[in-house]
Design a binder for these strands. Structure first.
Lengths: 360, 360
DNA sequence: TTGAAAGCGCTAACAA
DNA sequence: TTGTTAGCGCTTTCAA
């Protein structure tokens, strides 16, 4: 043998070389392509050869180099996932679901945790250099040249929980319009009189769609609606709540563009204004975080079915990779889950699987 | 020109070919190595050549293929991160911190979201095939051949928030022993009489170390301690709370191995047993989740400084990659943050940066 | 400063 | 079923 595979390379200062298929082939006394075949499911190889290769591979601690494989196959089995801050548990849940679904489909996640606000990270641009097989954009902000750029170069992209106007990029979203309208009708059915909406990021399609539907429905009923912006941030939501509840003619019903903000508002209403939530005031959110069901919050909220959304996104990625490019945009239906943070209307509440939902 | 770079390859059914350095070179009328130099910081190249290459690259939409670069440099600038379920916000915070710190250091994250319990995922084994530059193991369970295997093949590994006995693998942990002992002394100072500890996973070093220190300190004081196991799971923590509070001589002080379980216990104590937490009973946790400070919980807890832990882990990775292999194991100090979920002892509480901490 | 040439570790024709 | 051969797209000597 020429050299021990353990020897650090001498000329270059590069990291110690891991055993290659070539090393294994030499030890097993077969060709290097035989080694490749041994690690290729469905390849044509005899039992005898396979055993010898496996033995040699084990002895050397050989692992097929997926980087080299990617290069030649032009498939990395890596999916880039761009997702905003994980402080909001909704995104944690989404990431967890994506991780599970993508792993099941044989993909890994290259993670780009972009701040929700502020300038688009230059790091993001780099995602394409890694030759990911596809990109999943779970972000709140509307415009992103990134999505269109991918589309142009033929890289499959799916937007999750966001849409972009003037864009043909595929997307999977919850029922922002229907959900927010349902919440509005629900709060009207509770016979509330003064409404408020707390918006997330004004550049986010989610917040804009929810706001449009909510305001339209309330105004149609001839009731007043106030509005505040809290950018999907916890502390800004607290500030918005103080502003609304401390002002003239405070609202008796607040709809927040997501649960995370609703939890902040709930805390302020109770701890700082001494309100009994669900009686003095109704507070509703959007998402149905796991936490929303905790007794401390018991938050009425329109559910976004995270698992279903993740599954659809992965399916769309798969379809695009197969070339069977499916439809452009999908809306995943949800339900208004009725809990203790709102009054209960006189009609429409039904029990489904140990939960109360509103289906008038 | 022989062929348009846009043409899908005809013989193979492979994805459309992205422009390569070769294409750029042809268009710019230079050699392919000139293109490489243009994208290599500090390489020797004339301004004229650089400009021509840049123009050609832009026209073609060329992006250096990092996969090919990795193959040759034996560096992927990708770090594998193995982390359990993100339902526990502690792990979300850790992942977010790691993501920021690694990005700042020029690394990307290949994410492996392993279930906290159950059989070690076979997917995990695959992480090494991607030729990540290093591995960060943020997991709770004790034994993992993975860490040692990496160590053996010379791959830098750092364990975050866990240690393994009989292992030389580097680790960064919070002050499990000191923290739990401090919580014990704190609850004793509150003059509690009947104590309980709710353990996480019995295979997790975190839970074991916290339990050992807590129990030793309480027993030293001659007080009784009960014990339940909830495996770091929310619903199991609820069940444990029901068991403890519904039994004979229920505890008047409960220390949970982490905040996530403490929040579950808090809810049960209040909603199901009608207890006023912080008066009838003291409940303390470990981690200091962002949520612990919310008014609904106001949880007294021993803080694990996530940002500092992440920074240390990344520094250790860097050191190992530079070859300047630093120390093996680090303990990051924390503080006992005093809030409303416990009684307040007669001494030792001091105000630090708008927070009350216990420093007797 | 430049180009030619030799690989990085692997897969995929093609013959044998 | 096998081995041989030709690359995947890039970096890096080595001469020129």
């Amino acid at each position: 043998m020429a050299s021990s595979p353990d020897r650090p390379s001498q000329k270059t200062g590069l990291p110690r070389r891991a055993p290659t298929a070539h090393d294994v082939a030499a030890l097993a006394g077969v060709s290097q392509s035989a080694v490749s075949r041994c690690f290729t499911p469905g390849a044509s190889i005899s039992d005898d050869t396979r055993r010898r290769v496996q033995a040699a591979a084990e002895q050397l601690g050989y692992r097929p180099n997926l980087i080299a494989r990617s290069l030649i196959k032009r498939r990395s089995t890596i999916i880039g996932v761009v997702i905003p801050g994980l402080q909001n548990p909704f995104y944690s849940s989404v990431l967890e679901a994506l991780s599970a679904d993508l792993a099941a489909a044989g993909y890994r996640i290259l993670l780009f945790n972009a701040p929700a606000r502020g300038t688009p990270d230059p790091v993001l641009d780099e995602v394409l250099n890694y030759r990911v097989d596809a990109l999943i954009l779970v972000s709140s902000t509307l415009s992103s040249g990134l999505a269109d750029e991918c589309q142009n170069i033929g890289l499959p992209v799916v937007q999750l929980n966001r849409t972009a106007e003037r864009s043909t990029v595929s997307s999977v979203v919850g029922d922002n319009h229907g959900g927010a309208a349902t919440v509005a009708r629900f709060l009207l059915a509770c016979e509330h009189q003064r409404f408020a909406f707390i918006a997330g990021l004004e550049t986010a399609s989610t917040s804009r769609e929810r706001e449009a539907a909510f305001l339209a429905t309330i105004e149609e009923a001839g009731k007043p609606v106030k509005r505040a912006v809290a950018n999907y941030a916890f502390d800004e939501a607290q500030a918005a709540a103080r502003m609304l509840l401390g002002g003239d003619a405070p609202p008796d019903a607040i709809f927040c563009a997501n649960d995370y903000m609703a939890l902040a508002v709930l805390g302020v209403a109770r701890a700082e204004f001494g309100l009994t939530v669900g009686r003095d005031i109704s507070i509703a959110g959007f998402d149905d975080l796991p936490m929303a069901a905790w007794p401390e919050f018991s938050l009425t909220t329109f559910r976004q079915p995270v698992r279903a959304m993740s599954a659809r996104a992965v399916a769309m990625i798969d379809a695009q990779l197969q070339g069977t490019d499916s439809g452009r945009s999908e809306v995943v239906a949800g339900d208004l889950v009725v809990r203790g943070s709102t009054r209960v209307p006189a009609y429409g509440v039904v029990e489904v699987e140990n939960e109360r939902v509103w289906r008038p």
